[in-house]
Amino acid sequence: MVSLYGPDLEHVDFGWPYDYQNTMNKYVLIPLYKYFMEENPGLGVKIPRPSGY
């Protein structure tokens, strides 16, 4: 995944990397959701609840 898209996923130039959607869910979206919606809701960042969480 890193070799395809770079360490910061900067080369994902399309909507959603379906081949890696579980990885994205587990390591990107769920931590994002936890951080912004559960631990720091005061920051005001809205993250939709990821599937599988």
Partner: peptide, 27 residues
Amino acid sequence: FRTAVILCEGGKIYNLALLENLILSNA
């Protein structure tokens, strides 16, 4: 199929991402 369901001891269910070699909780 890219995801399979895994039954674990104690009757818990998890998902296995078959192409990403990843275990996820089954929500």
